[in-house]
Design a protein around this nucleic acid. Structure first.
Lengths: 187, 187
DNA sequence: GTTACTGTACCGTCTGGACGGAATGAACGG
DNA sequence: CCGTTCATTCCGTCCAGACGGTACAGTAAC
């Protein structure tokens, strides 16, 4: 009944979800279509090939990445707080898509590497403006990546509130440490 | 003429190399066999199924991981220095296998997640013994993960010496920062 | 009539895995 | 020293199924 292109977004969601939870191997056209609740023909109507699907995911990452940096700069706790907290979490659209692109073979989709690099540079610049010191800024961005990897490793994707609270406490401690170092460098 | 099981190691090397550079999708039995200079039948002699191949890689990670922690503790520059430097590099057997396992879909191979977690805990404990502070130790391990991800993203796997020197300089700065923080926490 | 799909049928290629060998060399008896 | 036997190590081919992709007829809303 909805003639609006609703399926397109659902397909991209499903593609990202399967990439994150089951890897690229499982992200076949059939599997993506089934997970999206869409027929294979419907998927291919919006994305004529698998390459088009990947391109669509990368385009979405670019959108969400730009939005994330803007949100970072205007976050109440400051860019660093927002950055490390969202890195540890993994239940936002952006986090899912970011990790999904991480799962793509970078040597086969060079644009994926560029998209990730672009997201990185946005983060680095925002963090640098906040903390001043380039080495500390780099350290913070690296820790953010580490948190992403950890969230992916511990399978936080459908985590219960208990383990999430534990992660939050760890991030609080990290933020306190960063704050101490930051004020020590620039008193 | 070589009746020694030389092929087994070559197959594992090839499997890891393809996972790292081209992703799990490209790591088919044929591709691994071809890259190892072995026939498909020869591969299947040593690893009766793809699951067996994965198990073999995980077993090798466990070996190398234990060896890496031992090497860390007896490294000349100390555990932290050794850890961050090897995280930034990616030309050792251990780094290759570690990142290769990272590329496996964790939800499908739960043992992969456990193996990575085990490697992590070994690092964390060695770093903790060195720096004393648990939060700083966690920050260091996270930065190591970030460096792994960065090395994977920038495709350092066949890097020229120029880009490697740049990475080394960055790691030097990070180590200097960690050292300052460490002595500030425990004067 | 256009847009946004569903559904089915189909094609060529690749995939994991099974299988039957074949070369090598150690073990053993004579 | 020789011949046979035997396990180990590896090769090459075959197959059923899954894969990406095409084609197309139909449907339902606007």
């Amino acid at each position: 009944m909805p003639p609006a292109p609703a399926a397109r977004d659902k397909v991209l969601d499903a593609f990202a979800a399967i990439l994150v939870t089951q890897g690229e191997r499982a992200a076949t056209l059939d599997a993506v279509a089934a997970h999206a609740g869409v027929s294979k023909g419907g998927l291919l109507y919006h994305f004529a090939s698998k390459q088009a699907l990947v391109d669509g995911l990368l385009a979405r990452l670019a959108e969400l990445s730009a939005a994330d940096v803007i949100e970072m700069r205007s976050a109440t706790g400051g860019p660093v707080d927002h950055f490390l907290r969202t890195s540890a979490q993994s239940d936002t659209d952006f986090d899912r898509v970011y990790v999904a692109v991480t799962r793509l073979p970078q040597d086969i989709y060079p644009q994926a590497r560029q998209a990730l690099q672009a997201a990185h540079e946005g983060w680095y610049e925002a963090v640098l403006e906040s903390v001043g010191d380039p080495v500390l800024a780099r350290a913070i961005v690296l820790m953010g990546d580490g948190l992403y990897l950890e969230a992916a490793r511990t399978g936080d994707w459908d985590a219960d509130s208990r383990s999430r609270r534990r992660t939050d406490a760890h991030v609080d401690e990290l933020l306190a440490l960063v704050d101490r170092v930051s004020t020590a460098l620039h008193p």
